[in-house]
Simulated assay, not measured.
Amino acid sequence: MKIKTYLFPILVIALFSGSCNLFQSNSGQYELVVLDTLNIPFSGDIHAGTYAHNTGLIYNYQSGEYLKFDSLGNVLANKIIPTVGDSGLYYVNGLKIIENGNILAKSIKGEIGLLDEELNLVKKANMPFPNGSLDLKRNQNAINVYKDELLLFHPGRNNKSPYELGYYRDNYLLEKLNPSTGVATPFLKLSPKSQYQESLHFEPPTALISISDNSLYFVFNKEPLISKYDLSNNGEWVNSIPLDSEDFVQVKGQKLPLGNDGSVLVEGEITNLFALKNGFAVVYIDGLLKEPGPGQKIPGKQLKIYNYETGWSAPIELPFNLLFLLNFEQENKAFYGLINPKTLPIDNNQAQVLKYQLASH
């Protein structure tokens, strides 16, 4: 997929948008207000991050550096964990801070590390079969905890390839891992409303999951459909909610796996999923056709909230230079977003985290 042709104007806009402290939603329903800017000593790219229980965490794959910070940007812990060996973790793209302050780190190889509050690797488990989807996408919401078991996206059980026709229709979506025994069992079936039920080839997806109480929300990054499952009833499917974005660009399903025919310049993608008390929130990019229709603009990240009583909020435009959100819990609570280090000055040696608040109108 060729995207370089439009990256330069996006980066230019990002440099200007990064200096603003107010971003307004399309309808005026919400304003995205910057409450604070945290400058944290951390150099290089950032491949994963999260924020929970009043602490944040960021990670760089090349250096193996993990850094933990508080709500004011103070460094709480800093550690380098090697990427190989028994005491290492290779390319972590999923982080989860659990209630006791410990941290789960999921690597693309199927390693799951348990880090203590000082970022020491105290335990490492390995999935019993290889990950069939070696996607290098950063910061996947692909691991969670439910009743002392780990739920994670790790396709490829029984040496089956997730790139085969009908894989997600014919197999389970997640694995449930008992961290004490190392036993993994397949879990969760595909929504009956999903496009992946069809006997067509689609662009290979990755999955995002998020849990609130007994509700698990699941979405493929390339499908604008968010599905709810009831964990108290063995993961029974409850419903699926379309994203409700007419501009979400997809490569159409095909009988032969020919991929993008050139009509799609940038695919639409859901990049964050957050389970809420009575719904969920997503961050997404609409994408761009090679020959865009009237009014279609350069795509930027948008936050959208779904409430089961009131439906979808208006899309809330996020800054162009936002890499990803670290958390989102509810509309009236502050949350944090990470600025893309590549949009900061070239000699910068700090990570920039913005503290946001939604102001309703």
Rank of each mutant, 00 (worst) to 15 (best):
L273G: 04
Q352L: 11
L134D: 09
G56C: 12
K147G: 00
N348W: 00
V84N: 14
A77P: 12
K160G: 02
V84P: 01
K106N: 07
F8N: 13
N278L: 06
N178F: 09
V183E: 15
L256N: 08
G132W: 11
P341S: 08
I40T: 04
D170K: 13
G279P: 08
V145W: 03
G253T: 03
E175D: 14
F153I: 01
K193S: 10
V264I: 13
N171S: 13
N349A: 12
D86C: 05
L354C: 05
F320I: 09
I103C: 09
V238I: 14
M1C: 11
S87K: 13
L11G: 09
I346S: 14
S17F: 04
N39H: 06
Q330N: 14
P299M: 08
T83M: 15
L265K: 11
I226K: 03
Y59I: 04
S191Y: 08
E223A: 04
F218L: 11
Y146A: 05
Q254W: 05
A105V: 07
Q250D: 03
F153N: 06
D261F: 01
T50K: 02
L121R: 09
L134S: 08
L57G: 07
L165R: 10
K355Y: 04
T55D: 12
G293S: 02
N126R: 13
D213T: 10
F320H: 10
Y217Q: 02
V264A: 07
L151S: 04
T181C: 12
L152Q: 01
L150A: 02
K137E: 12
G101I: 08
